[in-house]
Design a protein around this nucleic acid. Structure first.
Lengths: 273, 273
DNA sequence: GGGATTTAATAGTCCGACAATAAGGTCGGC
DNA sequence: GCCGACCTTATTGTCGGACTATTAAATCCC
């Protein structure tokens, strides 16, 4: 019997794209000697987590290219002034996410991109630190365009009362705060996560964080373009109503227009910028 | 400039669902005391990897339920007769995959299922050790049914000569060996991975391993049912020809019938068995 | 020149100690 | 008697150093 564990109340899925409070100095140029990877007092994140973050960003951002060897354990842990154990734990994290591979005597090398777990929430967060690759964002939107309409259809068939409440609340929150506020964007993510959750399909639910990230970038791009063309909330409402009505076809259709408009924006941005 | 890194020649994506050579004794019942987690000589897999595998299987298979606290570092590492460091590295791997969370004084607890990275190749492999949840497999097939037709359409538009060669070779291999052989099943996975690769979309490509696992289960289920109803290779050929012809609509359609037939089989099995 | 052998560099493991954290109990105030 | 501040203590987090295992690369022998 699962004890009260709920650190993850409903809808709290896609929100782990947090920005760590540790300053990540670009380790590229000269004299990155005493960079404060070490949060001396009152940190929050654990040390090996900080190292993993730093390394992860360095890899995903291309500072270390696939095939590159990153400095040996002793060298790097010494340079960062952390113990070798902490450094190794960080590397295990990267290994678990498919970013690197360690072999005795050969060192640890960055794996080719197709081995990376790009949909892992943390990897995604690393990819979005700094300015991410526009091509990748477009790919994420393509994934949205594929998955979300189908998910909406399934949700229309399988949703229960609790699902509907979550969607309704999220919609209300989106309306109350606009999408210009952080609270509004969180509600937006909750809405889309809620639809995936309503499919009762674990394999779809795990895509929540990935799709949530893409959802976030919708508004980011729109704001960057200073073009907040149309109020997207009516579109969301149509999706909700179709799901509430149990109309799978309508839900799929409504979601498709919603996502395709976003995809258009991204493609236009990619073409221009 | 990326040095020659190609440890991952084309089409080698979905094949990491390997079975480790370490005997995993079900840690369930009594007296799992001296179980040989420790491969004394001539192993292959690293020690912390073996521990992570053992723990991962135990968690995914439900031996530890979400919310459960697993034994403390000192206790468990002592029982397994490994150092605390090695055990910790294993736990970091599980943490990176979202299976557990460690908090000081509170111990490390199994996270709720919706935090698990179920599409991670390793987690998938763990989930398929022993008899996996039929519901999850069905979910995986639903994901296939959603993603693959769309991916086939994109592939038809974007494939280049190299992509076609990979698909053609895989198709030939499937024909030569049947799907009853391991080589044939590998070719089957390569075919589906090749289509995803042809989309040139990283967010889709990472689904290769997940979908590859589902593809494998198609044949497993069919064989278990002793019903090898129809030769699926002509279906694959139709998909290939549509992609080669650049006909997105036809590719999507052909893939849809292919997957839907498989989905039917699974659903029937789930209903019966 | 090619295969067997040695070397050395590097990741992997172990140990033992101490630090930091916070869960859960305890005590005191109201 | 209830609630908040305090303390205890169990547990993870970090450290340093030593030793082992593995294997890429150089070296040597035939």
């Amino acid at each position: 019997m699962p004890p009260a564990d709920d650190t993850s109340a409903a809808g709290g899925d896609g929100d782990d794209l947090d920005a760590p409070e540790i300053a990540i100095e670009d380790p590229g140029s000269a004299a990155a000697v005493d960079d404060p990877v070490r949060p001396p007092r009152g940190t929050g994140r654990r040390l090996h987590g900080a190292i993993a973050h730093k390394l992860g960003v360095a890899i995903v951002s291309g500072h270390y290219a696939p095939g590159d060897r990153l400095p040996g354990e002793v060298a790097y842990s010494g340079e960062l002034d952390v113990s070798r154990g902490a450094y190794r734990e960080a590397v295990q994290v990267l290994t678990a996410k498919g970013l690197v591979e360690s072999r005795t005597k050969a060192g640890t090398r960055v794996l080719p991109r197709n081995r990376w777990n790009l949909l892992d929430p943390e990897v995604l967060a690393w990819a979005f630190t700094g300015d991410p690759d526009i091509g990748f964002i477009r790919g994420l939107f393509e994934l949205r365009a594929i998955v979300e309409p189908a998910a909406a259809a399934l949700a229309a068939e399988r949703r229960d009362r609790a699902d509907l409440k979550i969607l309704k609340d999220a919609l209300a929150a989106m309306t109350r705060h606009s999408l210009a506020t952080e609270a509004g964007r969180t509600a937006d993510r909750d809405f889309h996560s809620g639809i995936l959750a309503a499919t009762k399909n674990d394999a779809l639910i795990v895509l929540s964080s990935s799709i949530g990230a893409a959802v976030n970038w919708t508004t980011v791009f729109k704001q960057r373009a200073r073009a907040l063309p149309r109020n997207p909330i009516p579109d969301h409402r149509r999706v909700y109503e179709a799901i509430a009505a149990g109309d799978a076809a309508a839900a799929s259709m409504a979601m498709r227009v919603l996502v395709e408009l976003a995809l258009e924006d991204i493609s236009r941005m990619a073409g221009e910028g």
